[in-house]
Design a protein around this nucleic acid. Sequence first.
DNA 1: CCGTTAAGCGGCGTTTCGGA
DNA 2: TCCGAAACGCCGCTTAACGG
Length: 405
Amino acid sequence: MRQLTIGEARRLAIRAQGLDRARPARAVTMRDVRRTIHRLGVLQIDSVSIIAPAHYQVLFSRLGPYDRSLLDELVYRRREFCERWAHEASILPVAHWALLRHRMESNERRTRTLGAFLAAHPAYAAAVLGLVRSSGAMAAGEIPEPDGTFGRSEGWWGWTMAKCVLEALFAQGTLAVAGRRSSGFARAYDLAERVIPAPHRTRAPSRTEAQRELIRLSVKALGVGTLRDIADYYRLPVKESAARIAELEGDGELQRVAVEGWRAPAWLRLETPIPRRVQGAALLSPFDPLVWFRPRAERLFDFEHRLEIYTPAPRRRWGYYVLPFLLGERIVARVDLKADRAKRVLRVLAAHVEGHADAEVVSPALAAELRLLAEWLSLDVVRVGARGNLARSLARALREGDPRR
DNA sequence: CCGTTAAGCGGCGTTTCGGA
DNA sequence: TCCGAAACGCCGCTTAACGG
């Protein structure tokens, strides 16, 4: 079997994600945005905007400062992309709607749970659907509850009856997300036939055909990956993924390789050139596909990464919203960021450097990246707090590199 | 047949931003 | 200045599968 060094695997992954080179100095166009999402396949959404919503941040790390309305134009007006549950809530090329159809009727956890809700309240579900049909796109808060009042949700995850019905109909493909209300926060749902253009909505590839195509897309986006890496990209069942990978290997589309230090075998697309060097620098969203699947991030980068958004404050190790910093072919640091919009300050609440990296090399590159991020967010200044083993060095690099001094 | 690993499932937690 | 509405993933346990 062909052998790959860990460095080769890293460079393959980084190039596949479009993070292998310095970003263009010219202005970012709609074509750049379109190409980037196609390359990634999945653009994970998180609307909670600690810095910027996660999908905007993912694009920023590949493209640099860009006009966020370009993405809204492509998704919600031109309908070149759609929202769908991929590995999580995501933006996808609209052609991929058909590839996920097999699970709109399937028995997987999400569809099943929400389907049970629909079955329990058929009359109310029909009323909600009728309202959307006659009124056009609706957000959950605009639809009355069964008793005629407008419901309040209890906490983040306490959905109203209206929200449950809308999400269930979205999961089974009757409704689609037509747009967003309240500057990106709230989904507005409409009939899928009014959102997803006909050829993409009506095409119905078989389950195995769709899975094969999703596996192709996963491997393309990962560069190289184990069975579990590949299955996770679209959250396909692991067993079925193994069968599809074997088929693609048999057809000569995928090549099986052994990566240095990995127990499980991995696959890549045949004839994929392996970059000899990569030279990018990017602050990654915690939702970035490069580090999204934690076992992979550990295996590939020796980087222990976890979302601590849902961890109670005293138990957090790295911070609330932590961005890994990719420099060349390693993840060298992580920063807990917060955009203080009222004071126009980008706050670095904590900064940690990885054990294998040199703080004196990392700090100037990270400082430059933070300044660019602040500029993009229309914040005037970057301020570094005391927490973390990189804080002092980073603060110094920011002072020294300040063009106003 | 037993030990280990994988899969499945239920419970639980924090912050932003627009508008009144 | 306050209030309402919206945004999923991790941990740990149980059960299933696998391999020696």
